[in-house]
Amino acid sequence: MIFKWNKIGALRCGGAVLSGLMLAASFPGWSQSTLIFTALVPLLLAVQSLSARQTAALSWLCGVVFYGVSLSWFWQMTNTVDAWAFKFGTGGALLFIVSYCAFYFIPFGVAAAWCGRVWSDGSFFKNIRIMMFMTVLWTGLEYLRGTLFTGFGWNALGVSQYANPAMIQVAEWGGVAVVSAVIVWMNMGVFLTIRQYVKHRQFRKYRPHFELILGLTPLALSVAFGMQVLFGASEVGAPVQVGLIQPNIPQTSRRDAQLMAETRERLETLSSAALRMNQVELLVWPETALPDYFRLSFSSRALVNRLTRDGVPLLVGTMDFSEGAGGRELHNSALLYDEGEGTVSTYHKQHLVPFGEYVPFPNLLRALSPLDVDFTAGESSTLFALPGK
C-alpha cells in the first residue's frame, strides 16, 4: 500500500479530494469561481513531508477528481451513439482523458513537496522563490497539456474566471496562461502563509505574513487593470458591434436529417433577430454550428447567403476540407464569409480533441469509436480581416 490507512493518511487523501472538488466547483456547472484562488491549498498541505511516490499518488487523485467532475458532461455523449461497443468506447475515452490530464498534476505536487524539503526554513526570499517556481511550473504544464499530442487544453485554471470580466482583461498580455499564473500565485501565497503559521506555532515565532500580501498584489492589480480597460476610454480604434449566436444544439441533432433542418432554422431565426437591431457589423456562429460541410451543402450555403445579403459578414463554424499530399483532408474550421466576396479567409483548428475529432492509436481503438474518419489539424493561425475595415 502507498499509504497506511490511519487518521493522517485519511486527512491527506481528503485534502487531495477537497482540492479536486474546489477546482471543479470553480468551473461552469457550479460556477463558484472564487474558490479557485485557494483550491490548490489543501493539496499543497497534504503532500508536505511525503515521498515522491506518495506525493504522485495524491496529486494524481486530485487531478482525477477535478477532471472527473468538471468533464462529467462527457457522459452525455454516450446518448449520441446506439451500439454498445461505441457506448463503451465513449465511456472509456472519458476515463482515458481524465486519467491522462490528471498526470499533469503529478509534477506540480512532487515539486511542491520537494520545495518544502529544500527551502524549508521559511525565509521570505526563499518563499518568493517557491512562489515563482511553482507558478511557472503550473503554467508550463498547462501549456504542455494544451499542445502535446495535438493538445487537450480544456479547463485551464484561468478559464474559471470566464464570468469575471475585470479579472480576465490581463489575458491580453499572454492569453489564459496569465490568468492561470495569477491564480496559482495567489494559492501559493495562501499556502505559504498557513505553513508559516503551522510550522512556527510551537515556537511562538511570528512575523508579518508578507507572502499573503504578495499573493494578493497581482490579483488586485489584475482587477484594477480590468476595471480600467472596461470603464476607461478606449484608444485602440473604432468599436465593432458583434452579434454572437448560440443556438444550443444537442449533439444528437447532427445525425438526424430532420433535426439538421431544425438546426439551420434556429440559426436563421436567431441571426435574423440580431440583424434587425441594425447595429451588428459582424455575426459570429460557434464551432461547427452548421451540421454539414458548408462548401458542399446547398442548404447551408443558401442560408449563409440569405443572412449576408445586406452586407454583414458572417464567421461560420463548419466542417471543411482541403487537398493534401495524401488526398482529401477534413478539418474543423471557421470561415469568414461576405456576400460580395464569398469566403474571405479560413482557419483550420490546430488543437484537435482526442476521441471527438480524431482517434488516437486508430489501429487499436477505431473499433470502439463511432468516428469512421479523423479530422486533420491545421498548421497555422489566421488573422481575420473584416471587409471594409
Rank of each mutant, 00 (worst) to 15 (best):
residue 101 C to K: 04
residue 69 V to S: 03
residue 247 P to L: 01
residue 78 T to A: 14
residue 354 P to W: 06
residue 387 P to R: 05
residue 57 A to C: 12
residue 105 F to E: 01
residue 126 K to T: 08
residue 318 T to G: 04
residue 363 N to Q: 13
residue 209 H to K: 13
residue 80 T to C: 11
residue 58 L to T: 03
residue 229 V to T: 11
residue 372 D to M: 07
residue 11 L to E: 08
residue 267 L to N: 08
residue 326 G to I: 08
residue 183 I to T: 08
residue 294 F to Q: 04
residue 255 R to K: 13
residue 189 G to S: 04
residue 6 N to D: 15
residue 239 P to H: 10
residue 123 S to D: 15
residue 296 L to Y: 05
residue 323 E to P: 00
residue 298 F to Y: 10
residue 67 Y to R: 00
residue 293 Y to F: 15
residue 318 T to I: 01
residue 237 G to I: 09
residue 159 V to T: 10
residue 371 L to C: 06
residue 254 R to M: 11
residue 262 E to L: 12
residue 4 K to R: 07
residue 88 F to T: 12
residue 136 V to I: 15
residue 66 F to A: 08
residue 117 R to G: 13
residue 1 M to N: 07
residue 70 S to H: 00
residue 168 I to C: 02
residue 309 R to I: 05
residue 93 A to M: 11
residue 374 D to A: 09
residue 246 Q to W: 06
residue 158 G to W: 02
residue 106 I to F: 11
residue 184 V to W: 02
residue 286 P to A: 07
residue 300 S to D: 15
residue 44 L to S: 09
residue 108 F to W: 12
residue 177 A to V: 03
residue 187 N to Y: 11
residue 28 P to S: 06
residue 337 Y to N: 02
residue 368 L to P: 00
residue 190 V to F: 05
residue 379 E to K: 10
residue 143 Y to L: 12
residue 283 L to V: 14
residue 109 G to Y: 09
residue 283 L to D: 11
residue 221 L to A: 15
residue 319 M to Y: 10
residue 110 V to M: 14
residue 384 F to K: 04
residue 349 K to G: 01
residue 290 L to E: 05
residue 128 I to C: 15
residue 51 S to I: 03
residue 334 A to D: 02
residue 189 G to K: 00
residue 304 V to T: 13
residue 16 A to P: 06
residue 71 L to Y: 04
residue 30 W to F: 14
residue 164 N to E: 10
